[in-house]
Amino acid sequence: MGIDFIIAAIITVVGLTTPILLAGLGELVVEKSGVLNLGVEGMMLVGAISGFAVTVYTFNPWFGVLGAAAGGALASLLFAVLVLQLNSNQVATGLALTIFGTGISSLMGLSFTGRIVMPFASVFPDALAKHEYLRLIFGYSPIVYFALIMVPLTTWFLKSTRAGLILRAVGENDLSAHSIGYSVIKVRYAAIAFGGAMAGIGGCYFSMVITPMWAEKMTAGRGWIALALVVFAGWRTGRLLTGAYFFGILMALELYAKASGFSFLPSQFWAAMPYAMTVVALSFISSRGTAGANAPACLGKPFLPST
């Protein structure tokens, strides 16, 4: 078991982690603005088929990624209009979005089953991307680097920019943000669209990178893991990154343990871990009270200005 083995294992973990990291980052921003969008799985599927379809037509994976972002964002806007304009219940609307996204993606995908595209692999020269050791750094799809760059960018945006401050203020106390003169609705629209776009890109990682093809329900529940991840991370971007890799390592560990002949714990134990640990983490975060927690106070509640 040499360095080569470890590098290959890390590459598998990166593959498992990237989609949930992307979708999780998007959802984190959405939740920070005070909105709970449970439609992540649906948006990921729409992103997966949109990205694939655009790549098939344009032969250009970069356009594909843009298409996936647009698809995810469009799907999320459906949610946004209902939730923001018409004050519908966020939980029910999010679930409806997942049902809708699952249905519409399979309808859109009918004419794409059985087709393939070139995998959106590393853009670095083979000397780097396929190098025995350097592939650890250069061997990934551009989407992986994009996800990693988005982590500090999102952190910076939320912590250090005026817009980020406003977004957090809206999520913390929408009524007072409104009374100071910020447009709660506009901020949330932007956040939701960002969340949709990120979920869409996360989705296209499946259809364009891991397995460059389209298959119905190919995200296989990763959207729900992304939702858990946001909570597990306590709404902090840094922890979201470590959390995503932690979940990714858990998923890989299950496979490695089983493939090596170990079965000291049933595989269901591994599969349940991300969710169970999220509940535990959530309890820790919440028990410290709102002061210590990063949970947006307005999460999931409708914005109802009195005037």
Partner: peptide, 10 residues
Amino acid sequence: NVNEILSSLM
């Protein structure tokens, strides 16, 4: 004070 939406879903 754990949000029941999240915990029940998990």
